[in-house]
């Protein structure tokens, strides 16, 4: 039997930087998040603030060392760093925002997915305390548009969401660098289309069944959107993300005997993996989705206040004083 066409498309995944460098174990991720958090904590201790300045020329600098740091400690309580859990919530919030912004611009799913993967990879290297996720979120969308040949000017993007486009440009290089210039990423959507095509062929689906398969594909895409918000894209290859989405969708539509289909798929691939191995992966993806929570704006207020104070304690003091005059400045959700 000939290889299903979508498997040929996956052939380049097998030799990709995505597969070679950007699929991790849960332990890897945990360590990377911890390391970034730890580094930001040390910066906070040393400089009294964590914000990395990105200058107009794209260069980076740490905050000025606080000469009166000791005084501060005595007079005020030192700003508290975010915990890794809080960082995770903050990232989750802005990842949700990425989908929002991309929807607002009517960008295709592929761009949304690319931006999300860039964002996730970026924060494997950095703490949100160092680079504000609001800025990085927009720059990731901008970079994804560039990489996916759907060029949108920074100005246009900035205007659409009332953000300063210079900030997008200032962060562009640091984002590309942090991604190691590995800019071709694989999302589950294309594989999903391939799987559904393959099903149409192998079932020789007609009329009603064809429509059911298409409905199932649509539901599966929505499931894949949910998967993209979790850590799963850093832990599993896109083919497994697609299968997890398809399985979830099949639970709703009940179109096919998925187990049997998976078996035929594995045998056609001459895969050395067993169906039970695959099932363990798909279960793990499901469980990431069901555990995932996108924090609400109210949840975010507390974390955002903390973020502000450790990124830039002095401005936090000022903004506290101004608070009654300008609500906007303390609103973390403008993006």
């Amino acid at each position: 039997m000939s290889r299903p066409s979508f498997l040929n498309n996956m052939a380049d995944f097998l030799t990709s930087t995505h597969r070679a460098k950007w699929i991790f174990s849960p332990q890897d991720l945990k360590e990377k998040y911890k390391a970034a958090n730890q580094r930001a904590r040390q910066t906070l201790e040393k400089y009294g603030a964590t914000r990395m300045e990105v200058d107009v020329d794209g260069s980076l600098s740490y905050p000025e060392p606080q000469t009166d740091a000791k005084d501060n400690v005595e007079k005020h309580s030192r700003p508290k760093p975010l915990k890794t859990e809080e960082e995770q919530l903050l990232r989750a919030f802005y990842e949700f925002k990425i989908q929002d912004v991309c929807d607002a611009f009517k960008f295709p799913r592929k761009i949304q997915a690319t931006a999300l993967i860039y964002f996730k990879r970026f924060y494997l290297q950095w703490s949100v305390m160092e680079h504000h996720p609001k800025h990085i979120m927009l720059t990731c969308i901008y970079a994804a548009c560039k990489a996916e040949e759907n060029h949108v000017s920074a100005e246009e993007l900035g205007k659409g969401i009332e953000q300063d486009h210079q900030m997008i440009l200032n962060n562009e290089i640091i984002v590309f660098q942090s991604l190691g210039f590995d800019l071709i990423v694989y999302a589950p959507y294309r594989t999903l289309d391939g799987l559904v095509n393959d099903l149409e062929d192998s079932l020789q689906a007609k009329d009603e069944q064809l429509q059911m398969l298409r409905d199932m594909n649509e539901t599966a895409k929505i499931e894949a959107d949910k998967i993209m918000l979790t850590d799963a894209p850093l832990l599993f290859p896109p083919g497994q993300l697609a299968l997890a989405a398809l399985r979830k969708s099949n639970e709703v539509h009940g179109v096919l005997d998925l187990e049997r289909y998976l078996e035929s798929l594995l045998s056609r691939q001459h895969s050395t993996h067993t169906i039970s191995e695959l099932t363990v992966s798909l279960n793990a993806i499901d469980s990431l989705v069901s555990k995932h929570e996108t924090p609400t704006a109210t949840d975010m207020k507390h974390i955002d206040r903390k973020l502000k104070s450790c990124r830039d304690p002095s401005s936090h003091e000022k903004s506290k004083k101004r608070k009654h005059r300008s609500k906007e400045t303390s609103n973390p959700l403008q993006a």
């Binding site: 597969r19 849960p26 945990k30 850590d231 497994q240 993996h273 191995e277 992966s281 990431l288």
Partner: peptide
């Protein structure tokens, strides 16, 4: 031990 929420056990095979 700055724990992250529990991840499912790592899979032996991650290749589809």
């Amino acid at each position: 031990g700055m724990g992250m929420p529990g991840y499912p056990p790592q899979q032996k095979s991650r290749r589809f």
